[in-house]
Write a protein that binds this DNA or RNA. Structure first.
Lengths: 215, 215
DNA sequence: ACGATGTTGATACGGCGGTACCATAAAGGG
DNA sequence: CCCTTTATGGTACCGCCGTATCAACATCGT
């Protein structure tokens, strides 16, 4: 058997081309030909690995979420050994804010898919919902552990706070995308709530900042 | 001059047809012919009042936001004479949650437009941003007035809280749309934060609820 | 070297969607 | 009564897009 080629690898290359071009021009504008051109490959080959556009879109979504979770994982490990619960929570929340090109396209495309899934049953059947409430559960667990360790107020509702933090991160992410808000202001709002939740006086673990508001 | 017809009225009728069909099948699927059929009118007439599809879409967005702000205004006046600041804030936040068909389609379409505006310059140039931060300013004002009246803690940051509340409302609205969250849980989260912000023991003004969590 | 696998190219079909043109019919005001 | 406005209908152009088909070439394991 000749010319062994890893099909998943090829599919990933093409899916990344899809993500790139969709991130630039919008998911609704991309066609098979655009993806092929962006991948530097013939249209025929895109059809060869993905028989239909629908499958290509599904695979693109899958790849998008996979790459993002990998990135978040790397960022969590990058917080150093034995990070504090607050540092972990903070890294989790800030990782999904659209700050650079990668997070921007992720946020844009993920939201695009989500909106499409409202009126597209095939897309809604895709594993779509379980990703956000996995994040919700993880965050709720982190907060509960922190609470048990005495790092937070004893009266806070960890589940509700987890939902709130993720919701704020998501919505302010979109605000950043449309140019209504700056990443800095979003970070400031999140910090405000982390300061409220975590009673210890530990502050922003990643980048040192001036304690007072800049004049 | 014969056959006087209010052009704006006709345009509104067509725009409402656009909103209806887009709310059902998704904004990206609607064509001129769909809008004409939904409005019970000829394709030719749609072209007659809106020369191009782009103009139709713009007008549709305008009509959507106008109708929504009118609805919110009505809801605010519906809270009775001299509503408490908390009741006003609560009405403002709950009005944008997708609970019935109208709010559902509004949330869906407005988010669709917002996402489109990220990669479409013509749409981004449309008055789009000023609506949300008008809401933010209004909410911040309400909170500040409540604070000056001693209804809230003196240490809360009204601007930050306004941003947070709107962000949570928006993101949880989308969660409701995609079926991840129920309207009730979203309302519960918002109530939680209102309880935190407003120190007076006034509670949910609209529907009475059991104080404890249901078993 | 043979043959299965990967890859390209060109080309075309069918459909749909935005836009356009034209002829025509009601309708109501001057 | 006439003429402008409003509205319909049909029809067609043009371009794009997803999909399909066919021929050809490259490549590499066996």
């Amino acid at each position: 058997m000749p010319k062994r080629v890893d099909h998943d690898e090829r599919r990933t290359q093409i899916a990344e081309a899809l993500v790139r071009v969709a991130g630039r021009r919008g998911l609704h504008t991309v066609g098979m030909r655009d993806v092929a051109a962006e991948a530097g490959v013939s249209l025929r080959l895109v059809q060869y690995y993905f028989q239909t556009k629908e499958k290509l879109l599904f695979y693109g979504l899958q790849h998008l979420t996979d790459r993002f979770t990998a990135r978040v994982g790397a960022r969590l490990r990058g917080t150093g050994p034995a990070p504090t619960p607050r540092a972990t929570v903070e890294a989790l929340l800030l990782a999904s804010l659209p700050t650079d090109e990668e997070t921007r396209t992720f946020h844009l495309l993920y939201t695009s898919y989500a909106i499409l899934s409202v009126t597209d049953k095939a897309l809604a059947a895709q594993p779509f919902i379980d990703r956000p409430d996995a994040a919700e559960n993880a965050l709720a667990d982190l907060l509960r552990q922190a609470q048990e360790a005495g790092l937070t107020g004893r009266d806070i509702d960890t589940r509700t706070e987890a939902i709130s933090l993720l919701a704020m991160s998501a919505a302010m992410g979109t605000s950043i995308l449309v140019g209504q808000r700056t990443p800095e202001s979003a970070v400031a709002v999140l910090h405000h709530h982390l300061d409220r939740i975590f009673t210890t006086d530990e502050r922003r673990s990643t980048a040192p900042r001036t304690p007072g508001p800049p004049q």
